[in-house]
Amino acid sequence: MHSASSIKQKFLKKWIMGLQLCNSSKKNMTIMERRKAIKLSADLALASVRNCTTRWSRALVASASQNDDNQALLQHIIGSDAAKHKKASIDVVANSTTSVAKKIASKKILKRSWGIRRVRKLSNVALKDPPYSIAKRLVKKRTQLLKNLVPGGESMDAISLIEETLDYMVWLRAQVDVMRSLARASERLDGK
């Protein structure tokens, strides 16, 4: 499909486009605002270069589209088929939020129903506590952490989470590369 270089070029183009739009839409931004705008545009550019085919990119777009201020930017970067993507991404968001809510609710119910028996069994379990259960708990904890890191990870299962993490990592790296080179360039320019 793409080579890494073409990916980076595309990303840079989209990003600069987004930056431009931000710049033109809002004058005299504070440094924090600028930062936010830069990050948002970079994220959106990344997502749009990824064609919104992966879950993390859709989640990025979705999280951006929740804020009304970003609509113009979104339209601009994502482009003509923004509507389609937005729909999909909103679906993603809705799915994730509902599923998370459901999960929490079901967990609560489960806890309540197990509460009585738990107390009795607790001493028994604590006595045994086999090593593999400790490992399992560790892995679970880390998986949860990873879910929080990867955009849209809350609604993924283990396999897709790892796949998405793979993909996300590669693209994040490309993003970092481009941003770094641009930062260096602008720094250099600033020094002149």
Partner: peptide, 11 residues
């Protein structure tokens, strides 16, 4: 990414 965006914003 955060840092770079901050840097860019600062520069």
């Amino acid at each position: 990414v955060e840092f770079l965006s901050m840097k860019l914003a600062a520069v």
